[in-house]
Amino acid sequence: MDVRIDNLTKSYGNQKAVDSISFDIKSGEIVGFLGPNGAGKTTTMKMLTQYMQPDSGTIWYDNSSSYDVDIRREIGYLPEHNPLYEDMPVMDYLAFAAALQSVPQSEVPSRVIEMVRICGLDVEKHKKIGELSKGYRQRVGLAQAIIHNPKVLILDEPTTGLDPNQIVEIRELIRKLGREKTVILSTHILPEVEATCDRILIINKGKIAADGTVQQLRKQSEGKSLLQVRIEGAPVEHIAEGLRLIEGLQKVLLVDTTNKRFEIESNAGDAVNRLVYRACVQNHWDLLEMIPFETKLEDIFRDLTIN
């Protein structure tokens, strides 16, 4: 199911939580909402799941934009903080969630069993939800979201409270589900979006600050590249001086005097490596190390959200 959002706006009092954002998500895409706290991620998700009504703007699911149960039936939602009925046993709760999402009565037991298997709830399935640890509660939340095999999956911070092994499992599960569904997840764990998402939407102050794949965002971030080199064969000052003479380099930093390591920032991409190599040959320096660094998602994120 394709999701299209058109000029969505929502204010709380005077504060604009979401400020006319628009985007398209195709079926089979996994999109990560990224943004600092209070950026409008959760509000956007609440509007996508019809829990909140936008002040203005439209949300299209395929060709329908109405507020009704037929759309909600196609959505699986894991809300922020993962609210659950504490005094219900896991199995009963999953059956309840399935029935509410109009899974036919005859299929409910088999769906519940499948969810218990997929989400690894087997050991805890007869306990009351209130007795579960946070990681297992999170799995129950995920299980109730996917039990009716929805076409759109909306997950607000799906991996909070999980241990590293569980995080890997859940990410794999999301990737698997994402092949045939539209998945929208929010997080502020950056490696998470890199690991699971096809596309990233960085939201800041209610607006979309960036939209694209991880690679595209890297390129967008002004094509900056960072190179660390270790050069010997002359006093450090000479080398630094010589490097600064090379055209196209923006910044040369001496980071380690004893080992003679330098950091070079430039706009030139791969060409820098060649320029630095030639300079070394000309000056008869020994080039001992040359390590290219990719701009990290953290840096892009910081660039876009702090100003």
């Binding site: 609440k46 799941t49 019809q50 829990y51 149960v69 037929d70 909600r72 039936r73 959505i75 939602y77 809300p79 903080h81 609210p83 659950l84 009925y85 504490e86 969630a97 509410l100 999402q101 109009s102 109730q144």
Partner: peptide, 14 residues
């Protein structure tokens, strides 16, 4: 209080 109202209202029920 527990926020489960959000679960209910986002399901296929009015």
């Amino acid at each position: 209080k527990s926020g489960t109202i959000e679960l209910l209202l986002t399901k296929a029920i009015t």
